Amino acid sequence: MALALPAVLGLAFLLVPLAGLLVRTPWASLPGRLLSAEVGEALRLSVVCASLATAVCLVLGVPLAWLLARADLPGRGLLRALVTVPLVLPPVVGGVALLLVLGRRGLIGQHLDAWFGVSLPFTTAGVVVAEAFVAMPFLVISVEGALRAADPRHEEAAATLGASRLLAFRRVTLPSIAPGVVAGAVLCWARALGEFGATITFAGNFPGETTTTPLAVYLALETDPDAAVVLSVVLLLVSVGVLAGLRDRWIGGSP
């Protein structure tokens, strides 16, 4: 009983702000605002960029997770820690790091610009890069956990039947870890959708090109608070939907 009061206060601390957001939502004008050009453009750009970032994370993150889970590498613990750094790194710092590496004068960006005429900062592609940078650890952690839980003897059996390592991974391992891959991809997509700090630092805030929904919320707070509330509610509903869909895997709920 001694813990009941602080528990209730903690619950209120987390839920009351969200309830306040819902109370202040202009429900009567919500459909019209969602159909407005500015809101629609921000939502469209957010969905497109988050989906592309998730695709990048799948292509790069699944092999990385396999490396961390199955490969016998020296310093694997340190490598795993480095992979998860973006989880705790302030997003703005991540954006600055991306600028220093991929900017026009960056370590790699200067060569991309000089050799191929490619400039990532302050472009839609830059949004995708920033979102993939902060979101990939969610996918890697989920897939690595699924790989560790999977029985490697199935892959060994496939190898004894003549399957190559790549074929065994594609036909045996990947289907067995599919739930983990899906869960990681959904979390990755949701994290990318809500990214703000790295995006505004690396890609800027240009309407129609880099202004995603979180950035549009920030802009609208000064000029149109109702629009900011509407966009915030959309992001809140997406977050709740993701957690509800993954409740069995991440928060131990029951159907």
Rank of each mutant, 00 (worst) to 15 (best):
D151L: 11
A135E: 02
A125H: 07
A42C: 08
S239E: 10
P179S: 04
V39P: 04
S232K: 09
L43P: 06
V39I: 15
L3I: 11
E209N: 00
E38M: 01
G194A: 13
I141Q: 13
G194Y: 10
G245P: 05
P214V: 02
S142T: 12
D72P: 12
V118S: 06
P214D: 08
R249G: 01
W250C: 08
V62G: 04
T211W: 03
R80Y: 09
P152A: 10
L139N: 09
I200V: 15
A69T: 09
V238F: 09
T212R: 05
A146D: 07
V234R: 07
R249W: 12
V129W: 04
V230F: 00
F13S: 12
L187I: 03
V23F: 13
R44Q: 12
T211L: 07
R165L: 11
L64H: 08
I177A: 04
T210F: 02
G245A: 15
L73E: 02
V143P: 07
L237Y: 09
V230C: 07
A4P: 02
P91D: 06
H111V: 15
F202G: 05
S142M: 13
V143S: 09
G106Y: 03
A163K: 08
R24P: 01
L58V: 04
E209K: 14
V233L: 13
G162Y: 05
I141V: 15
R76A: 14
L87W: 09
D113C: 11
P31H: 07
L60H: 03
S46F: 04
G194D: 08
L21K: 14
G162T: 09
G94N: 05
P121Q: 03
P179K: 03
L30Y: 06
G241A: 12
A150L: 12
H154F: 14
L14W: 10
L11M: 13
V233R: 10
V240C: 14
V39T: 15
L82C: 14
L78E: 10
L22D: 09
L231K: 09
A198T: 02
V186R: 07
L243A: 11
F202N: 03
G241S: 12
A168L: 08
L58F: 03
F122Q: 10
W66H: 13
V39C: 02
L139M: 10
R148K: 14
A185D: 05
W27L: 12
E195R: 04
G245Q: 07
A19W: 15
A125I: 03
L82M: 13
P26M: 09
A146I: 10
S164A: 12
W189I: 00
M1L: 13
P91W: 00
A244W: 15
G77Y: 10
I251P: 03
R191H: 01
F206T: 14
L89E: 06
E38G: 11
L112T: 01
T211Q: 15
V134R: 01
G20E: 13
E222G: 13
L34F: 08
S176C: 12
V217S: 04
A178R: 15
D113R: 13
L78C: 11
T123Y: 00
L89T: 14
L107G: 09
G106E: 07
A157E: 14
L87G: 08
A37R: 14
T25N: 11
L161S: 10
E222P: 00
E144V: 00
V143H: 01
P137Y: 05
G75Y: 10
I177G: 02
W189E: 02
G245K: 08
L15P: 04
A163P: 06
A132T: 00
A178L: 15
T212E: 00
A203D: 01
P179C: 11
